[in-house]
Write a protein that binds this DNA or RNA. Structure first.
Lengths: 190, 190
DNA sequence: GTCTATAATAGGATAGAC
DNA sequence: GTCTATCCTATTATAGAC
């Protein structure tokens, strides 16, 4: 005893899995089992308990979203290609529709717990990044914004429905079709 | 004591509210408070406990979905008008984006509880009804099906994102725009 | 059909040894 | 940094009176 069993980053990975699957209803038993750490050890990393674990997991998830999925959107180059790069990032992140969205899962259960602003920020950054590419692709600002919202709606909804239907295929189909639906007609083939 | 305080249908209404908000993580305390019935009285109506309450609530919700929201889609008349009638039904059902989707909320938490097929059936009926109208409006069967899926994705996703952002306006905007996006160009103005 | 009372279990969190 | 042991509360569920 004394030496870390796994790096804190790996602890966060495993906590994330549980929160994605169960939302804030995730129990300390589940979180303990997933990490291989006893309850008390989790409190060493997160003195604030479950609320702090959830907050840490969201903050990190938002950082990864920005660095690994939204980053391609902000680089120079063909907007259509960048959009397709984001779709590939999402396919990986959501394991082709088999994994839930952490932000979406944590919206359930209403009452205040102190990480609402992180959820809001995550969705906002995602929408803003997509809107920025669509504006660059030729859409007026307003149109780019609503199309970006629609894109995130479609992705989040596909995850919900595919979970409910027990079939992830429609999620993969959506990722394939989305760039063509979002871009102006003239740039689709680009 | 002995006489029913409220009709069973009203009990189901109130249970539904809680499950929509909290998913299956809803506690018996919450369900008891929402109905005004003690735990033991809930077990009188639902001997199978929480799982039976959830199952009853979904079955009834699916019936209402069919009768009050999908019914307009299956009547004769202009497809565009019928689609807009469904949007009005959804606006009511989801309280303009302020209320969550019961089916979506209950997809969280992974493990088997015996009502997965009701969730699946609810989504399937919804998609099939929309696809049927879109086919009638002129789309080939395959195209009608994928557009119907996309419609349900958008609605479910908008509910999730609006919950996360604390702003229901984008949901109302989506309901306004959807018919125009779903129908063939020639029929949009009809 | 509703209640009070109770049981048994699981939940979140803390103290303190090593 | 991890553990065992413990605390208190909440949870699900049942028994039985009225």
């Amino acid at each position: 005893m004394g030496a870390p069993l796994i790096p804190k980053d790996e602890v966060l990975n495993r906590l994330t899995r549980v929160f994605r699957e169960s939302g804030y209803a995730a129990s300390l038993s589940q979180l303990s089992e997933a990490t291989g750490l006893q309850r008390a050890s989790l409190y060493h990393y997160f003195p604030g308990g479950k609320a702090e674990m959830a907050a840490a997991v969201i903050e990190r998830s938002n950082r990864i979203l920005g660095e690994e999925i939204l980053a391609p959107l902000l680089e120079p180059g063909d907007p259509a290609k960048r959009l397709r790069a984001m779709m590939r990032g999402l396919d990986r992140y959501f394991d082709s529709g088999r994994e839930s969205c952490l932000l979406g899962s944590l919206t359930l259960g209403g009452s205040r717990r102190g990480f609402e602003e992180h959820i809001e920020a995550g969705f906002a950054a995602w929408i803003a990044a997509v809107a920025s590419v669509l504006a660059e692709a030729g859409w007026p600002r307003r149109e780019a914004r609503t199309r970006a919202e629609d894109a995130i709606f479609a992705i989040e909804g596909a995850l919900v429905v595919c979970r409910g239907m027990g079939d992830a295929a429609p999620f993969r189909r959506l990722l394939r079709d989305l760039p063509g639906h979002l871009l102006p007609a003239s740039t689709v083939a680009a």
